[in-house]
Measured scan of single mutants.
Amino acid sequence: RDLEAFAERFKQRRIKLGVTQADVGSALANLKIPGVGSLSQSTICRFESLTLSHNNMIALKPILQAWLEEAE
């Protein structure tokens, strides 16, 4: 599925960039996405391991996609 593929790709890119889950969570606040502050390390972990609810995964995907584009 698309979400699973993105979560795996996100994790691989994050590791390759040398960024921790906690770093991603705090960096999201710097993107200044309306309504989005920082996220906890555990939320990033649960996204990568696909243990969040489907609706949460869908909500987080564009936010994490934006971070990934900014980081690369």
Rank of each mutant, 00 (worst) to 15 (best):
L31S: 07
E69G: 09
K11V: 07
I58Y: 04
N56M: 06
S53M: 06
L3P: 03
L64D: 03
C45K: 11
A5P: 07
K61L: 10
E4K: 10
L39R: 02
G35D: 06
M57R: 01
M57G: 05
E4Y: 15
Q41F: 06
I15V: 05
L50W: 01
D23A: 09
F10G: 00
L52W: 00
D23E: 12
L3Y: 08
L60W: 02
V24G: 00
E8V: 10
A27Y: 13
P62D: 09
V19Q: 13
S49F: 03
C45S: 14
T20Y: 00
I58G: 07
Q41W: 12
L17F: 02
I33W: 05
E69W: 07
I63P: 06
K32L: 07
K16P: 00
V36G: 08
F10E: 02
S38W: 08
S42R: 11
S53K: 02
K11S: 05
L52C: 01
K61I: 06
K32W: 09
N30H: 11
L50N: 15
I33D: 08
A66W: 10
L3F: 15
P62G: 03
T51Q: 12
N55Q: 15
V19R: 14
F47Y: 04
I15Q: 12
T43N: 06
R46W: 03
S49R: 14
K61P: 01
P34M: 09
D23W: 04
P34G: 11
L52K: 09
E4R: 10
A29M: 12
I15N: 04
F10W: 01
A5E: 06
S26Q: 12
G25M: 08
G18Q: 04
Q65I: 04
D23P: 02
C45Y: 15
E4S: 10
I63T: 11
G35C: 04
K11Q: 06
N55E: 09
E4I: 13
K16H: 14
N56A: 12
N30L: 07
L64Y: 05
P34W: 04
E4T: 13
A27D: 10
M57I: 06
L60F: 07
R9I: 06
Q41D: 12
S26E: 14
H54S: 10
Q65K: 11
V19T: 06
I15W: 04
L31T: 09
E70S: 11
L60S: 02
D2L: 03
A22L: 08
E72I: 02
N56E: 15
S49M: 04
V36C: 05
F47T: 00
A22D: 07
R1G: 14
S38H: 15
A7C: 06
S53N: 03
L64P: 00
S40N: 11
R9D: 15
E8R: 14
S49K: 15
L31Y: 14
A22N: 08
L60T: 05
L31R: 11
Q12W: 07
E4Q: 10
S53Y: 03
K11P: 00
E8P: 01
S40G: 14
A29G: 13
N30S: 12
L17Q: 04
P34Q: 07
I63D: 05
L28F: 08
L3H: 06
A22I: 05
T43E: 03
I58M: 10
V36S: 09
P62E: 04
L39K: 10
A27C: 08
T51M: 15
F10Y: 05
S42D: 15
V24M: 09
G35H: 04
L39W: 05
S26V: 08
Q12I: 12
A66P: 04
K11W: 02
D23M: 09
L31I: 14
I58C: 05
W67Q: 15
K11L: 03
E48S: 03
K32N: 15
H54D: 09
L3N: 05
A71E: 07
D23H: 10
S38T: 11
R13T: 09
S42H: 15
Q21Y: 09
I63A: 12
A71W: 12
A66H: 09
L17A: 05
E69F: 07
R13I: 14
S40W: 01
L60H: 00
L28R: 03
